[in-house]
């Protein structure tokens, strides 16, 4: 796959944040100064205890949560000030955790909405490409998206995000609420998408499964980067695992 958006500047990270401070209330930042740099082609997983700000970080990057300081750039282009609806055109696709499809619209209409960002000439071809990549959706395109199973919804949400052939795909807990079998399907699909050249950033609670497919992991603690390293090293490090990931011991207590 090639990016639909401006060609990234040579050597610039696919996704970068500098000193990012974000949160719903200006005086109560949840993300407190995050410098994140994701190289093109990486599959990065964001981990951390509940309330660490993983979700808020990706939502801020996607333009859903207000940014109070710092910058976000895609392929070297600063997109901090772009409104949410322009970020997809800048090459950043985001799949929220819940309510990530239009349930009252049909499968076809969900895809048409995503395709509306593209030039008219490319729309039909991209929708056909999505049906080819997600054959489950092609069975009955007129079906209301709200009647799909959890796994199929996630497929549709991902297809919607991939419609513009984005260089960067960010997903907020795509495994939430899915059965282990479906989680495995979704994760193997994300691996495929990543292999095809899309930089993937993943927020996950499902630590082991996520680390198994990730190339690198970042652990957020209290709105800052607490640790970063190769996914395999994290899996092998018992102290880190216990401290941050709750493997081997109960997850760190939920923050108030």
């Amino acid at each position: 796959m090639t990016g639909a958006s401006p060609i990234p500047a040579a050597g610039a990270p696919a996704l970068e944040t500098r000193g990012l401070v974000a949160g719903y209330e200006p005086d109560l930042p949840i993300v407190r100064g995050v410098d994140l740099s994701v190289a093109s082609g990486e599959l990065l997983v964001l981990l951390g205890p509940n309330g660490a700000g993983k979700s808020t970080l990706v939502k801020a990057i996607a333009g859903v949560v207000p940014i109070h300081a710092g910058t976000v750039s895609i392929g070297g282009r600063d997109i901090t000030a772009l409104p949410a609806h322009r970020k997809i055109g800048a090459g950043l696709a985001f799949v929220p955790q819940t309510e990530n499809i239009f349930a009252t619209l049909s499968i076809q209409e969900n895809l048409q909405i995503a395709a509306a960002v593209l030039p008219k000439a490319r729309r039909a071809e991209r929708i056909a490409a999505m049906y080819a990549q997600f054959p489950d959706l092609a069975v009955k395109p007129a079906r209301l998206a709200g009647s799909l199973s959890g796994g199929q919804r996630q497929m549709l949400a991902i297809a919607r995000a991939l419609m513009v052939d984005p260089p960067v795909l960010i997903l907020d807990e795509p495994s939430a609420g899915l059965s282990p079998k479906i989680v495995a399907d979704v994760f193997s699909m994300l691996t495929e998408i990543n292999r095809a050249g899309v930089t993937v950033v993943l927020v996950e609670q499902n630590v082991k499964a996520a680390l198994a497919i990730a190339s690198r992991a970042i652990i957020l603690v209290e709105g800052r980067i607490g640790h970063e390293g190769a996914a395999q090293d994290l899996l092998d490090d018992p102290i880190l695992a216990r401290l941050y990931l709750g493997t081997g011991q109960a997850m760190e207590a939920r923050r108030p």
Partner: peptide, 12 residues
Amino acid sequence: ENPALAGIAGID
């Protein structure tokens, strides 16, 4: 149905 998702999906 969902203004936030509409924005993410590229709708102004």
